[in-house]
Each structure stands twice: as C-alpha cells, then as structure tokens.
C-alpha cells in the first residue's frame, strides 16, 4: 500500500484485494477529520451524479418490467389477435432479444454520458 494514510473504518476486509484499497476522499479533505469528511462541493457532486444515475436506472428498469410484462401477456393477446401458436412462438423467441440488446446499449450510452458530464462539471467547478 502506498505511504498515504487512509481511513479504515473497521477491520480491513481480509480477502483478496479488498482490504488494500483505501477509501476515496476529495483532495484536501483531512482523512480523519470526521466520518463523512466531505467538502461541500464534493457532496453536492456526489448527490447529483447518484440522482442522475438513479433516475436513468428507474427509467430502464421500467422498460425491463414493461418488456417482461408485455411478454407475459402476449400469448393471451395472440389468441385474441388470431396469431396462433406458431406466431406466438416466433414473437416470443425473436422480439425480446433485440429489445434487451437495444435497452442495454442505450442504458450504457446514457450512463456514460452522465458520467462524462459530471466529470466536466467537476473540472469546471474545480
């Protein structure tokens, strides 16, 4: 471990790799000053990025639930629409996979954008 002092809140984690990493703190913050020794801008920055990621996560989760639900009601819808069993099979096999991939890629891009913007904001602010 580097010579820098780090705050260890309890026993270090004894397993591989985990215990060796010191907690993160903003430059200039005194490590042992207080448990949550964050400078105000750091805390604001954290709150904004967590809020951004959470709202994105909420939206993507809603889409996941929507797809699962849609898939679950599809067979009965298919009966009404007269698609028939082979049609339902085809739709169930071929429609959700590309939707998952699309959802994942969209989420990845948005999450990375939130991070890029937060980095830019932090640099401008700092």
């Amino acid at each position: 471990m580097s010579g820098r002092r780090v705050t260890v809140t309890r026993n270090p984690v004894p397993a591989a790799g985990a215990g060796t990493a010191g907690p993160l703190r903003p430059l200039g913050a005194v490590a042992d000053a207080e448990p949550d020794g964050w400078a105000e801008p750091g805390e604001l920055h954290l709150r904004s990025i967590v809020a951004g990621q959470l709202s994105l996560a909420g939206r993507t989760l809603a889409a996941v639930a929507g797809i699962l639900l849609g898939v679950a009601v599809l067979p009965s819808l298919g009966e009404y629409a007269g698609i028939g069993a082979p049609g339902v099979w085809l739709v169930l096999c071929l429609v959700p996979p590309p939707l998952w991939a699309l959802l994942a890629v969209t989420h990845l891009r948005r999450a990375e954008r939130i991070e890029r913007e937060s980095v830019r904001a932090a640099r401008d602010g700092g």
């Binding site: 705050t7 993160l24 949550d36 954290l46 991070e115 937060s118 980095v119 932090a122 640099r123």
Partner: peptide, 18 residues
C-alpha cells in the same frame, strides 16, 4: 458518503480533484 462517492464517481475524476 465516501463509500458512495467511490462507487459512483467515475475514475476519470482522479485527475480532477478526487
């Protein structure tokens, strides 16, 4: 707060003050 920051703040910020 420090733990949450470590989990959520991207690594790039190592250069920008974290």
């Amino acid at each position: 707060s420090r733990k949450l920051a470590r989990m959520h703040i991207p690594e790039d910020l190592g250069e920008a003050g974290i």
